[in-house]
Design a protein around this nucleic acid. Structure first.
Length: 475
RNA sequence: GCUCCCUUCGUCUAGCGGCCCAGGACGCGGCCCUCUCACGGCUGAAACACGGGUUCGAUUCCCGUAGGGAGCGCCA
């Protein structure tokens, strides 16, 4: 009976939850779900200068939108500084740490010198074995970890495989700042150990940290959790995903009209695979997820594929559920709140009836919003270029014919199949192609050249509004 | 500069020595369907970075080269 899996997601609250962080969270969540374990959330806020409450809120909001939850309360790393200091003290007692009286300025100089001489940039260990009696007066020391200097530190990584770091390349890192606050690598080890974390899944940018952390675990005599360092996500151009290129917060993807389940599917497929499967539900994802399906190379973010996937999910979401998604989305998009304010019970009913026609043509909720605009439009409709072109003399004449035919249909019979029969028979008697009648109608009814099926448009708009819009543009 | 990692169609990937003159998906081209746009169906172009080994046999294993990435803070 092996112990239950405990994973954790540990973002630092210095900004929004970016897409790479979202995927890391997803992988941790999937692995915990898959194994029946837990996923913990820890906010790495030991950098008091840069951590903000707003960022914490943004991260929680991002996770909630992605549909990822965690077990227990979110832990603030900063709240655990006492314990971190205890660990540092123990390391000191055991001879695995020492006081370093170098000032930041001296360290900068050391780095600059190393760089100029093209030597590796490392702390020279000047206080490692120096007698503390030589400590300069008035300088509060930082505490450094006394790292092994020979041999190598091996990481058995579930994704990267066996990775060896020569110990001579890993210098004595600071574990407690001169102001008495712990640094990241120390805090992470103490917390992961105390929280019972069994599996650490995070970005490869932490791989070197993994080696240093392993040394601290060993010094403390603690078990090293299993690590899985997942590759990074690159921008469409292959460069690092920076704020300039698409390292957007997940809320930006919400505003672009993507559905959380499409996002989950896309993110899971980016760097992880289960054979040739492309589209899978969250339940399937949980069922299939495992660490050895994760690749080692970085992946580029491809909006075209995300869009395609999103379109799939939009089309396959039931109309009423999709309407709820749509309504929840509106507050986040430009022009959305204004639209939302105009949605009363009647408009809601119209949207629901139009939904099946609308969703087949939408790849994002933004498309859905644009597609639904004709429902909100007021007469006289403004026409786009193509619509205006369709409403030339010939188009208007066609509309006049359609108008005459439709006018004979009563309110009660104003349903798509009946309207379709009417227009088709009109086209037949006049020996016209249906398109010659339908396109001018579409232009008059929606102000555009593309829309859901014309008979559905007529039905949703209703008899009175439809006839009026056609009349506006008939000769 | 030093350490570590990566390299299959434009992109995401399957492949874990013969099933591969390399499969799927997105994107792109063509055809069909059709009231528009989508959807859908069919179809086409498109890749094992390069060079050496190992092996009866390499996309798969090893070593170089080239290219890319990550890390090298009293940041996380």
């Amino acid at each position: 009976m092996s112990s239950p899996v405990v994973t954790r997601f540990a973002p630092s609250p210095t900004g929004f939850l970016h897409i790479g962080g979202g995927r890391t969270a997803l992988f941790n969540w999937l692995y915990a779900r898959r194994t029946g374990g837990k996923m913990l959330l820890r906010i790495e806020d030991t950098d008091r200068e840069r951590s903000t409450d707003a960022a914490v809120a943004a991260i929680l909001d991002g996770l909630a939108w992605l549909g990822l939850d965690w077990d227990g309360e979110a832990v603030s790393q900063f709240s655990r500084v006492k314990r971190h200091r205890e660990v540092v003290d123990e390391l000191l007692r055991r001879g695995f740490a020492y006081r370093c009286y170098c000032t930041p300025a001296e360290l900068d100089a050391m780095r600059a010198r190393a760089e100029a001489e093209k030597r590796p940039i490392r702390y020279d260990g000047s206080w490692r074995d120096r007698d503390p009696a030589q400590a300069p007066a008035g300088v509060t020391p930082a505490i450094r970890f006394k790292a092994p200097q020979i041999g190598e530190t091996i990481i058995e990584d579930a994704v990267q495989g066996r990775v060896a770091f020569p110990n001579k390349d890993l210098d004595d890192l600071i574990i407690l700042r001169s102001d008495g606050n712990p640094t990241y690598n120390l805090a992470v080890v103490a917390d992961d150990h105390d929280m019972g974390v069994t599996h650490i899944i995070r970005g490869v940018d932490h791989l070197t940290n993994a080696a240093r952390q392993t040394q601290i675990y060993r010094a403390m005599g603690w078990d090293v959790p299993l690590m899985a360092h997942i590759p990074l996500i690159h921008g469409p151009d292959g460069a690092k995903l920076s704020k300039r290129h698409g390292a957007l917060g997940v809320e930006a993807y919400r505003a672009m009209g993507y559905l959380p389940e499409a996002m989950r599917n896309y993110l899971a497929r980016l760097g992880w695979s289960h054979g040739d499967d492309e589209i899978f539900s969250t339940a399937q994802m949980i069922d299939w997820f495992d660490l050895d399906g994760i690749g080692k190379s970085a992946a580029r973010f491809d909006f075209a594929k995300l869009e395609n996937l999103n379109g799939h999910y939009i089309r396959n979401t039931p109309d009423d559920v999709l309407l709820e998604h749509f309504l929840a989305f509106l507050p986040h998009v430009e022009g959305g709140p204004e639209l939302l304010a105009r949605i009363d019970a009647a408009m809601r009913a119209k949207l629901l009836r139009a939904m099946s026609g609308l969703k087949d043509r939408a790849k994002t909720l933004v498309d859905l919003m644009n597609g639904a605009k004709f429902l909100f439009a007021e007469r006289p409709l403004t026409l786009d270029d193509k619509a205006a072109q369709l409403l030339n003399g010939e188009g208007k004449a066609a509309n006049a014919m359609s108008l005459e035919a439709f006018a004979q249909i009563g309110e009660r019979d104003w349903i798509a199949p009946r309207l379709e029969r009417e227009l088709k028979s009109l086209a037949e008697t006049r020996n016209m192609k249906l398109g010659k009648l339908a396109q001018p109608l579409r232009a008059a009814l929606t102000g555009t050249s593309t829309s859901p099926g014309i008979f559905d448009v007529l039905e949703v708009l209703g008899r009175e509004e439809s006839l009026a819009r056609i009349r506006d543009h008939s000769a």
